[in-house]
Structures are given as structure tokens and as C-alpha cells.
Design a binder for these strands. Sequence first.
DNA 1: GCGATAAATCAAAGCGCTTAGATACTTTGC
DNA 2: GCAAAGTATCTAAGCGCTTTGATTTATCGC
Lengths: 364, 364
Amino acid sequence: MAKGPTVYHVAERAGVSIATVSFTFRQPDKVKASTRELVLAAAEELGYVPSASARGLARGRTGALGLFAYDYLLDPADGIRGEGQDPLHPAEADLERRNEDLRLFPLYVDEVQRGVELECWRRGQALLVGGGNPENNEAVLSDIAGRVDGLAVFPRSVPSEALARIARRIPVVEVSENVHNRELDHVTVDNISGVRAITEHLISAHGLSDLMFLGGMPSSDNEERLEGFLGALQDAGLPTTREPKYPCGSEQSLTEVVSDICRQGSLPEAFVCATDQDALVVMDALAAVGVGIPKDVAVTGFDGIAAGRVIKPSLTTVRQPMEQMGRTMVELLLDRLDHPDKPPVARRLPVRVVLRESCGCQPG
Amino acid sequence: MAKGPTVYHVAERAGVSIATVSFTFRQPDKVKASTRELVLAAAEELGYVPSASARGLARGRTGALGLFAYDYLLDPADGIRGEGQDPLHPAEADLERRNEDLRLFPLYVDEVQRGVELECWRRGQALLVGGGNPENNEAVLSDIAGRVDGLAVFPRSVPSEALARIARRIPVVEVSENVHNRELDHVTVDNISGVRAITEHLISAHGLSDLMFLGGMPSSDNEERLEGFLGALQDAGLPTTREPKYPCGSEQSLTEVVSDICRQGSLPEAFVCATDQDALVVMDALAAVGVGIPKDVAVTGFDGIAAGRVIKPSLTTVRQPMEQMGRTMVELLLDRLDHPDKPPVARRLPVRVVLRESCGCQPG
DNA sequence: GCGATAAATCAAAGCGCTTAGATACTTTGC
DNA sequence: GCAAAGTATCTAAGCGCTTTGATTTATCGC
């Protein structure tokens, strides 16, 4: 564990200058084959491993990208936060729950992260994943920012001032919710036509006409989804008498909304939900009061998380190409490095309706 | 995107030396409060983000740990590799399958990785995750090694010479399979008592006496599991007449083994499988020939992957504390950095039997 | 108010690599 | 066989930070 060998050691051993050693690794064809072998052999014997810090410093580029996977488990917005957690291990209680509850794993973020990982590896980029306790997000973010050439972040994971500050230094790309910072590159999906398509399916394939849109929290994504919903109703000449419900924030209140509706006997023919998570909550609420899906009411989601495939009845939804979104983030980052002055890009990816049982379709 | 501000800029702006700027960030109490504010303000205005490369170079430590998550999707050993894949996008075909097939996500590695991530974040370490195409694993590994202070790896993800070379430079910890390199730190689980316990359960709770051990591939983990199995039989005074089957490598042959047994009519009362993946294959094979589980034969696994909870019948298994294993890897790495000369550590974590339907127990 | 001691700041020397530009060594053309 | 035109290699100047030891400034006891 003694301090490792450096270019100097290798150079000495091979009887060349340190420049030649460096060239051997970075621009092999600038070095005569015989010399190269010599250097390589010396390096091998010494167990030489180039220091990325030194290289990064010299080159002004680290060769790594960063992903800030904020600790979504703790995000109050998704309603799975537990109470009274050990502040030192904030994530553990949730993680355990997550391990026990298939619904929670893998989530949207996990699949996007997977895409980021794969694309980085494919392109020979190192990937730094950082997460944080909500308390010190900024410090962590800044630390990561100092280590990478570009940063991929999830929306609302970090105050936008902090993000703006980072963005002055390195490219930043945000996934979805392209509303917060129009100066950044964004990867989003076609929310509008996704929901429009699934709504049309409910109308034309299942002959439904009394539909209601339900969403857990306000966001630009959800607004677009609502827009798609309303568009489909209009196109079909249906009235938009039901006002869409956005119980802001917690599952609790979404559950309440649903049970209120049931109690009043004003059940629509279908609930079009803004996310799969919302849909799962709605399905639970319906099950709790004995309403049958899709017999009494159809339910659809948006995202395509794994849980939707397992649940009974399986969830009809709009699947986001999450892996592809992750890959695209990497692509935009690398692009931006080459063209710093290009205007901000917002890449919008297509989605796919996945018909399953909860809308009344047969599986398989 | 102009080259960002450095300590020099901040120092100039704040009217102090670069040393003071550095101290402000690294050892704030060495700096007078008023000066500190000055520096911080200047840094803020300039949008200063310290360069980790420079810090790493100066300190001789990067402050990051690495995880080499070899692309298990491509590991022929787990039998899910597709044929004729685009060499440029080696993982994509498999990833798509994985997305479609719940069995494959999240896997063992995913959960361990999650543990590594969480523990790194908790300890304020950056985490570099690297994966690789099977072709250039070594190059990738070496690149990662140059970027981190310590490396966590999965077994057989990389040639052991390469690993040994890295280990000369930085601490390396391997998860499970502590057979390849006894010089490295290891995190393993108590395979023996896990399988012993689950076997005892089959014997005493379900009154079974004709048990058979089945494993997809030879490994030190699996050998220990077999040992636990045999131990339980002996303790119960049962004969070990059935020879355990290790169809080396592919699911194909494990499937064949099972259908052969069925064809011969020599079905045991239970299959104790070396891994959940193996168990899933076995269950498929049994289903294919119309053998009922657990009615005609009980089946158990080992690992506790998510798929075992969803499958019908749900899989009785021995759950490894995967997250904890990941966390422990980080712990060992950091430990090793402080005590380079301590003899190699092999930390063995306890496992937990999870009774579900496939052994004949009722769920819930 | 003075020297002595502690606290705050600074100057400067690296850390290990990359890469211009300089230098040495080979080819090539005639 | 020699100048011209490559090739191969080297010298040396950073890259942006940390940190030791020196220097300056503030604090204290008497």
C-alpha cells in the first residue's frame, strides 16, 4: 500500500522520459513500437496505475460524468417517507420498506439511472453517482460538480440556485420537468400524446365516456398529462365536466379524494392517473371500499414502473423509455461539452401505451 | 463554460492568499470568522467550485470509492445472455429482456450496489460505478482504479491477476466467493447455516425426508451451501443417498436435469437450490412437466431476490442481507485505508430464512 | 507599554500528469 | 553523400490545490 509508482518510476525503469511514458498510454502511435513495449513492460512490472487526479488536472477534464440521484426515498412528495427516522441513517427505514414492498423497487429513478450507467460505460466515461441527505444536498452536489465534466440531475432534487451555479461551470442536464430552468438541457417525454392516446383507448376501445384525471402533485409533467387528457376528451366530443383533482402532495389526500368520490356514489367510468404511483394508491383506495377494477371503474397510470406489471389487476399505463432517457442525458452532456454555446436543448422522447388488465383489456 | 474560477481568483477577490482560501474550505476554524466570510462571499460571487482533481493530486487521495459492477447481464454464467448482440451495444438486448421480465430486476448485484451507494453517501464518499464490456474489463478497471481510494468488486468480474495488480495500489474488497484471492478483504454470508436452517425446516416442519440439492454452477458459495444441506441431513439422521447435482454452468442443463428426474419418476420431496435463480429455473422446468409445487415437490432457493416474492407459488428462500453486504464492503474499504497492514478480513454476515409458499408454508 | 506567547496568514514547494515546442535521430530524393 | 523532411523523443512549463514552516498580527501578563 506504499505510494504507487508514477510516470517517473516507469520512465526510469524503461529508460525513457516521462513524456514517452505518457504518450505510450495516451497516444500510442506517437511512440515507436519497440519503445512502447518497453514502457508497457516496465509499467506492468511496477504495477503502474495512472492517476486520474493528475491527468484531470493536467487536461482540465476529468473524463467522468456525474449523476445526482437525490435520495428519492426521502422525498416527501412520493409519500413513502417514514416518521421518526434515525437521522444518521435516514434512508434505512425506507430502504427496508422498499425491499419488502415490491411496489417501490425498481422505481422510475432506478431505471433512468441504469440508462445513464450503461451509456456512460458504453462511451468510456466514468460515472460518479452521488446522493445525499436532504440536509447537505448542496455540499454534496458541489463536491460532485468538482469531480466531473458534466452532471445529470433529477428535477427538484436540488435548489435551482445551486444548480445554476454548477451550470456556470459544467454542463447540466435535467430529466423531465423542463420548467424550472430553461437554460439547462432537458430530457422529457411526450406527456401530452401519451395521455391522449391512453385516454382515447379508454374511449374508443372500451366505450367509456365519463373519465376523470387524478394526479398526486402539481408539476409541469402532470400539467402536460392533463392537457393530453383534456385534448382527448375534446376530440371525442366529450364534456369535460369532471374537474381534475390534484390533491397536492400526499398519498393520504389522494386516497381521501377517491374514497370521497366512492362515498358520494359519483364514480366515473375511469380514473386516468398522472403517474403509476398515483394509480397504485388509487387502486388501493378503491379496493378498500370494494370497488372492482376494471369491472366498476378502469384505472390507468403513467410511467411503466415494474410494480404495475405485478399488481393485480395489472396496470394499463404509458411507459416512459426510462433507460433511453438516461442514455439521452449522457448524450446531451457529451454533446454540450463539445458545443458549449449551442442554445439549450430539450429532447422529447416518445412514450408507449401498455395495455394491461386495469383498463379492461386482457393480458397477453 | 469558460474555465472556471480557481483559488487564485477567489484569493485575489477576497484580498487573501490562496492558502487562506484553501483553509476556508478544508479547515474553517483555522481562519478568523471575518476572513472566512470574506472568502466565502468571494467564492459565491465567482461561482467557485473546487477542483477535485487538484485536491486529489495534492492530497494523494481522491475521496472516492469505486464499485466495479461488471455487466452481469452479459455473464454467460447466469444464463440470460442473448445471442448475436450488437457488439457496440452489448447490454441493450438483455436490458430490454430484463425490463420485460421481472425475474431479472432487481437482482442480487443491484441490491448490493444500492447498499454500497447508501453507505458511501452516508460517509461522505463519492462513488464511482464502473461497468464494462467483457472485452475491455481490464482497461476499465484500471481506469477506475486510478480514480478512487478503494475498490469494491463482484467475484469473477475480472481476472484475478488484474485484481491483484490493483490491490497493490489500493484496497480491494470482494463480495462473497472468498476463495479466489485470500489476500483481499471479503464480505460473505453464512451459507452453511442458512441452508442448514432451511433444510431443517423442510425436514421438521414439513416432515420431508427425501431431499435433493441442486445448483447451477460450482462456486465456493455453492459448496458451502451444499455443506449446510448435508449437515442438516446428517443431523436429522437422514441418508444422503441422492447425489447433489451441479450441472455446470447453463440453465439449459439444469432444466434437463430436472426433467430427466421427472421422466424417471424419481422425484424427491424437495429440491433445495443453491440460488434463487436456480430455483426459478427448476420451478419452470417442473411446471413444464406438470409437477405441482409444493404439492408434489417443495422447492427452496437462496438469495432473496425480488422475483421470488412475485412468482407463484412464492419462493421460500434464504435471504442475504444484500444491502448490508454493500454497506459492509464500504466499511471494510475505509477501514483498510486506515490500517493498510492489518491482515485480510473476511466478514461473514448472517442470513435469514424466509418462508413462503414453495415449501408448503402459507404466506402471510 | 513591553516582551512573550498564541493566533492568523502567507510564501512556496510539491502532487503526477499532459503537451507545446525544442532537439535528436531517420528517411528520403537526387 | 547530403540537405530536406519527416519521426521519435525529450525538456520544461504548467494544471489547481494542500500543507509545512516562516512570518506577521493579535493577545496577554505584569
